[in-house]
Design a protein around this nucleic acid. Sequence first.
DNA 1: TGCATATTCAATGGATAACTTGATTTCAAG
DNA 2: CTTGAAATCAAGTTATCCATTGAATATGCA
Lengths: 250, 250
Amino acid sequence: MQARQNAARRDAPPVDPAGAGREAALAHYDELARLGKALSSPIRLRLLDLLRQGPRSVEVLAERAGVTVANASQHLQQLRGGRLVEADKRGQQVVYRLAGSAVSSFFAELRALAEALLPEMDRLKHGLLVAEPEARAALLARVRAGAVTLLDVRPAEEFEAGHLRGALSVPLAELPARLPELPKGREVVAYCRGPFCHLALEAVRLLEGAGYRAQHLDLGPPDLGADDLVTGAAAPPARSPARAAPRRKR
Amino acid sequence: MQARQNAARRDAPPVDPAGAGREAALAHYDELARLGKALSSPIRLRLLDLLRQGPRSVEVLAERAGVTVANASQHLQQLRGGRLVEADKRGQQVVYRLAGSAVSSFFAELRALAEALLPEMDRLKHGLLVAEPEARAALLARVRAGAVTLLDVRPAEEFEAGHLRGALSVPLAELPARLPELPKGREVVAYCRGPFCHLALEAVRLLEGAGYRAQHLDLGPPDLGADDLVTGAAAPPARSPARAAPRRKR
DNA sequence: TGCATATTCAATGGATAACTTGATTTCAAG
DNA sequence: CTTGAAATCAAGTTATCCATTGAATATGCA
């Protein structure tokens, strides 16, 4: 189909002096477009972002993304066609994962570009926005210094696949019941998957309602992978399944 | 239309504990997808890559990309909708340009990701491939040292919008006639727009046929912008149209 | 004012993509 | 061998996209 497009295009106005390597060169843009196509659906982007937290089965991904299993399966296959994700069968379920840490950092760069180009991105970031780099850096410094109670409000499996050093795993649903665990006078910082994830925001709302001084860190472990802050299984999201990689287990 | 999709998606299986910030969060992926969509067509990617060489009118872009003017215009408008390019009228023609240097470097990263993920990219790179980083670095070192005759075989306007320091502008079509200008014993290095551009390859073929020792540098000025090697108007492709920017006219 | 150029607009037909539904494969467990 | 779960496949409908065509809208120039 792409070949047909190329042929059609080549007939148009070939003003180029040398028509030799043209279709070969154009083929490269077709390849690039394969990646672009993979990134052209909100659902696929959401699946990709979820996979940045670690490998997951189709069913879990579908649930988290809010789509049917069949639909998620189809999207995942498209992502696999674009070589952005890989999959292998574990028992009776298929576990998808990113094709490499480069995919995760590329996603972060796409996000950064979007925030730079599309002004509406930050604005409708649910009202709350720590977006200012200085405020975020200050927050991170406090986190790094251990001056705050750090809360990971993602599902437990995602915590286990990699989390910030010193964080406490308290999935959002459990937070109300586990409030007594948190020292009362201390500032609480909650994080989740990243800027597009609302879990930490709701945790902060909940904490403030309960009288805590709470802050929202709008980055997730995948975004802080280059930092010295991530620990657990997958700072850069799991690349090689079995090969070596004897990371110190927290 | 995206709002409608969201509504439909929200009805599906809302297993999420808190359904509060969901549609707001999903809106972010819609925004990301706008960028992805812009990158999902080979023609748009080609136009973007051409714009990395400098601002151009619709007509020129259409000709270089090998599409009709109307078609190019529509694609350019989609790019503008995705905020990747900007345009303003100069006389009776509309000059498009990248929305910022971030777009150019993002393109380079997309290309790098494609080369990392899609093995077929390098293979069919017209046979010739200097792709090995060491070889390329050595070549660049010789170029930087002025040990070679450096040839810019792009159209003259693109040379004027920015080129490698010390390069000679010899558009491919003029090369046969201007061979006498080139010292005979010296190694010649030809470059053009970047890895997907065939001009330099054909120049090398031509030069070798004429008895020269010739090499192909598979990077263009936009890719070497961070380097100290680019001179002329636009190392990072022109950002602000009228504001300041008193370009020295070559 | 009138003509030519550059670009965009609007409409068409053909191809692609998205989501749903129901059937099918594959594997583990009994 | 049967049952059930997980994932994919296949078919069908709807929506969207894409390239082409011809008209319309500027803008500069005579």
